[in-house]
């Protein structure tokens, strides 16, 4: 029981755990792109529902923070709503759906369209932090490869894409090289979001099941891997948002009936609503 009489500490985790996670976060920020192990705790939700992100968020939250939680860009999905309510209850922090108003944003699989600014923290939920896992199953070996910066394998994966599809078909979890040193999996964000990894905000990545944290401090140089003759291209569906008319945002495809009718809408619900409130359509 915590000092204030609640059956849990501030933001659910006990202070010792948060301190441990903060140490991992500091190390991850000091060595951008490096996967730092941490003692991942059991959380009151199943693995795959954001246990890593939740532990990181719990460790960086202060009582004055304003929290936003999104899942695939949306504030109103079950996962986003549950996590938002979890912290409203366990930390008593204010919550918002507005990107611009939030100080801490926990996300699954998207980076908000509204550019982040200095002072904001974006926390990613990460399923598999190891970008080399696809081709090298041994953890002992992938660690060595990171240590020695042996990254030829990443290009094998991209080569295979082009050989099979004629272009680099990896559309999400697109690997990046951080400050010319570590290859990092940016979590399953669409590659459309990759350019936003060079940010003014602090980007933190938490993988609960794999017990790894990695991070990108503000203004880190992040390059998406590519070939000279097949350069990186951030991709989005060719279309405009049926709700706000945006032609430059990342779109979700929505089926509207059983006869093949479909529309595209912004995946970032806050971005879309803000535009509509401003009179766009």
């Amino acid at each position: 029981m915590s000092a204030d009489g609640l059956p849990w500490g501030f933001a659910y985790l006990d202070e010792g755990t948060k301190r441990m996670i903060r140490r991992a976060l500091l190390k991850a920020l000091a060595v951008p792109g490096l996967q730092v192990p941490f003692a991942s705790r059991e959380m009151p939700m199943p693995y795959g529902w954001g246990t890593g992100g939740v532990q990181v968020t719990a460790s960086v939250l202060t009582p004055d923070d304003v929290l936003k939680v999104i899942d695939q860009g949306a504030d109103d999905t079950t996962n986003a709503v549950s996590i938002r309510r979890f912290f409203a209850r366990t930390a008593g922090v204010a919550t918002t759906t507005r990107t611009a108003e939030a100080t801490v944003i926990q996300t699954r699989h998207r980076i908000p369209e509204t550019p982040l600014r200095e002072g904001q923290i974006l926390v990613f939920q990460v399923p598999i932090p190891e970008p080399l896992r696809f081709l090298e199953p041994r953890e002992t070996e992938t660690r060595r490869m990171h240590a020695l910066a042996e990254y030829g394998l990443m290009h094998v994966k991209l080569y295979e894409d082009i050989a099979r599809h004629g272009h680099i078909a990896t559309t999400y979890a697109y690997p990046v090289l951080v400050e010319g040193r570590y290859v990092m999996d940016p979590s399953p964000i669409p590659k459309f979001d990759n350019p936003k990894l060079c940010s003014e905000a602090i980007l933190l990545f938490g993988a609960g099941r794999e017990a790894r944290i990695h991070a990108l401090p503000p203004h880190t140089r992040v390059e998406s891997l590519a070939f000279e003759d097949h350069p990186f291209e951030p991709a989005r569906a060719a279309g405009i948002c049926a709700l706000c008319g945006a032609a430059d945002s990342y779109l979700d495809e929505v089926l509207t009936d059983d006869r093949g009718g479909r529309i595209f809408v912004c995946s970032d619900t806050d971005f879309c609503e803000t535009r509509r409130a401003g009179g766009a359509s």
């Binding site: 081709l135 030829g152 394998l153 094998v156 080569y159 295979e160 050989a163 070939f227 000279e228 003759d229």
Partner: peptide, 27 residues
Amino acid sequence: LRLNVSAGANVGERLMAVGARHYGAIR
């Protein structure tokens, strides 16, 4: 061998490991 990638990728791997970054040339 890496059985889960193509013959071309198997041969090209060492080239990419030493810095080859031109898909057409590797192929």
